[in-house]
Write a protein that binds this DNA or RNA. Structure first.
Lengths: 262, 262
DNA sequence: CGTTCGATTGAGGAAGATCAATTAATGTGG
DNA sequence: CCACATTAATTGATCTTCCTCAATCGAACG
């Protein structure tokens, strides 16, 4: 059994869902520990070399705003944030979610002004770094430039993943994948994933995933019915995720039209 | 009438669609001329300071491949390219289109290997730049670093626009917006936009826009029926765009449910 | 000249949007 | 602390959009 799993892993190295869920948990534990440590290291590096201005923000407050003159990049030390763009004709769209260690404001570099709003979804700490000061510091410290480019690269790669999910997954799978990504993000920051507090309304989730709030609600109900997720005792805002692997499995099940139970 | 339009423009300053199309054309001509010149300047700068290896690629050939070890960034001197990602479970997705002056390979910086394929859609010239050589050059020349960061920033901002289109526009509008973006991209490179050769099949366009090839075909037929686009005499691959502003107007018409002719 | 691939168009069906009603959670002022 | 108002979530019924399946047509190519 173990050897079979090992063979599978060798054949499909990029596959995110090994046969044995416990195996995945153990593997991921190591990966997440390293990721969590790396985020901490980077924050420490930035803190010591740049002495960023620290700012506490509360739910609903803006880190920066569309149209505002670009001059700073922001790094999240804690909290959860959403990136919202507003089109000229009034369409509003959540285009990103940000966690501890993530950078904000890259979109401003090219245009000279930010093209979106960055909104706190709960209380958090934001570090402000002047872009020109960062560039100066990068001249001395190559490590800093590497960190910056990695952050931008990761954002580009992740946006492409989002595009893929939007284009290829049916609604139920998109919701499951959304929860999986949220749980993964928490895990990579050393946080619990068995009970997560989505700080977004169904409408916000739906907006982010390109569907209506009713469809989100139905998808969540279906996930709960299939025991892939649960709801916390108080309210249905907090989601219980017994197994992140089960979420991945649900996504795959949506894609294979073969064995659809009832 | 004119004063009414002027009032509207004042109220909605960010609106991309002035009342008088000729006005838009004249304005855009200036913007595009500057954009075209800027692209040429950047290519010249890169060429002189980095002496990149130049490589000719033909339709269907890969610039780089998913999984390949990261070491280079690529700059397009000519041609049209698509970025394709393949998920572990076999879903294939066109996640980007690239033109002269665009950079390829940013996604590789974070992971250490590219996460997608870059495929030429016709004959073009690609410049290869070693990433570490680029960083070294950036240490001496601040201008180079600015150019690099602007390119990454633009990619991030554009990915968000794509996300917004996917999430908020109905199929017909998405196709119109796709054509508008393509035309805009050509204009910014000093190329004609009244007759454009889409080097993609309906299936590829549909994949990129998150819809089926039949829906793309029907959308194009509808656009042609409404005289927003036309088809070149030979075949229906090449699209005639008498007015880019008319494409924008069509997108807006799809969004306002009010005056739907028949 | 037939073969193949891409595009178009139609008919039917399914996923998801819209509309509407109900319930649950949250907050507010008395 | 409660009655009330408000906002969020759920669920059902219906309708629209888009997908799927299928047939036809056209262009390119050996």
């Amino acid at each position: 059994m173990l050897s079979h799993a090992a063979t599978l892993a060798a054949v499909i190295p990029a596959c995110g869902m090994p046969a044995d869920p416990r195996c995945a948990t153990n593997l991921d534990a190591g990966v997440n520990l390293r990721a969590s440590q790396r985020i901490a290291d980077i924050l420490k590096l930035l803190s010591t070399t740049l002495a960023p201005q620290r700012r506490l923000v509360h739910a609903g407050e803006l880190v920066y705003q569309a149209g505002e003159h670009f001059g700073n990049l922001y790094i999240l030390n804690s909290g959860f944030f959403k990136i919202v763009t507003l089109s000229p004709d009034g369409r509003e769209q959540v285009v990103g979610l940000k966690f501890r260690g993530d950078w904000l404001g890259f979109d401003g570099i090219a245009h000279g002004s930010y093209s979106c709003d960055a909104v706190a979804m709960d209380t958090g700490e934001v570090w402000t770094i002047r872009y020109d000061a960062l560039l100066s510091a990068c001249a001395d410290q190559r490590e800093l430039l590497t960190v910056l480019h990695e952050a931008m690269s990761r954002e580009i790669a992740h946006d492409r993943d989002s595009l893929m999910s939007l284009c290829t997954l049916p609604a139920d799978a998109r919701v499951a994948e959304f929860l999986r990504y949220w749980a993964e993000s928490l895990a990579k920051r050393g946080l619990r994933t068995d009970e997560i507090a989505l700080r977004m309304t169904r409408a916000e989730i739906g907006n982010y995933l390109g569907m209506t709030l009713e469809t989100v609600s139905r998808a969540l109900s279906r996930l709960a019915r299939d025991k892939v997720i649960g709801f916390a005792s108080k309210g249905r805002r907090d989601v219980l995720i017994p197994s992140v692997a089960a979420l991945s499995a649900f996504v795959q099940r949506c894609l294979s039209p073969a064995p659809m139970l009832q």
